[in-house]
Amino acid sequence: VSFKITLTSDPRLPYKVLSVPESTPFTAVLKFAAEEFKVPAATSAIITNDGIGINPAQTAGNVFLKHGSELRII
C-alpha cells in the first residue's frame, strides 16, 4: 500500500510517498515517516486530512482500508 504523508508543521507542506507491504505494522510507518521528515517519532502522530487520529497498533493495510492514502504527520 502507498501513503502520501504531509508534514503539517512546515508552512511549505512537504510530503513523502511511502510504499509498504500491507502487513507492515503502522508503528513502523510512523517511525519511518518521522525519520524522513527529521522530526522525533516519539512525539509524532499520524492523522487523517479530517484531523482524526490513527491508532498505530494496526497494520498498514488496515489503515489504508479505513482512512485511504492521504495522511498527515503532526
Rank of each mutant, 00 (worst) to 15 (best):
G68I: 00
A57V: 08
T43S: 14
V39F: 05
L30V: 14
E36F: 10
S44M: 13
N49P: 10
P14T: 10
P14Y: 05
S44K: 01
L71C: 02
L71W: 00
A60K: 00
F32C: 14
D10K: 04
K4Q: 05
N49C: 04
K38R: 13
V39G: 02
V17M: 15
V20S: 02
A45R: 14
T48N: 13
K66M: 12
E70A: 11
G68K: 03
L18N: 02
A45Y: 04
S23L: 12
N62G: 12
G51F: 03
A60Y: 01
F26Q: 00
T6W: 04
S2T: 12
E36M: 11
K38V: 07
S23A: 10
L13A: 07
E36T: 07
E35D: 13
L13M: 07
I52D: 10
A33G: 01
L71H: 02
I5V: 09
I74Q: 15
A33E: 00
A60D: 02
K66N: 11
F64W: 08
L30D: 02
T6R: 06
E36R: 10
F37T: 01
H67E: 10
K66A: 10
A28Y: 14
T6S: 09
V29K: 02
L65S: 13
H67D: 03
R72S: 13
V29H: 03
E36S: 12
I5Q: 01
K31H: 13
I46F: 15
F32Y: 06
I5L: 14
Q58F: 09
N49S: 07
G51D: 11
F26S: 07
A33L: 04
K38W: 03
H67R: 04
E35G: 07
G53Q: 15
S69I: 03
S9G: 15
A34W: 14
K16P: 01
N49H: 08
E35H: 13
K4I: 05
G51P: 00
N49E: 07
F37Y: 04
L30M: 10
T43V: 05
P14L: 08
T6G: 12
D10M: 07
K4M: 05
K16I: 09
N55S: 10
S69C: 06
H67V: 06
E70T: 05
G61N: 10
P11Q: 03
I54R: 01
I73N: 01
A60M: 02
T24I: 13
K38H: 11
A45F: 03
V29M: 08
S19V: 13
I5F: 14
S2Q: 07
D50N: 08
N49D: 05
E70K: 10
S9V: 09
A41Q: 11
H67Q: 06
G61W: 09
P56Y: 15
Q58M: 08
I52M: 11
L13P: 04
F64V: 04
A28L: 11
E36G: 10
I73L: 14
V20T: 08
D10A: 07
F37L: 05
F37Q: 01
G51S: 04
L18I: 14
P14F: 06
I47Q: 15
H67N: 06
I54P: 15
A57T: 11
F64Y: 09
K4S: 08
E36L: 06
V29L: 08
K66P: 01
A34K: 06
V1D: 05
G61L: 10
A34Y: 15
T48S: 14
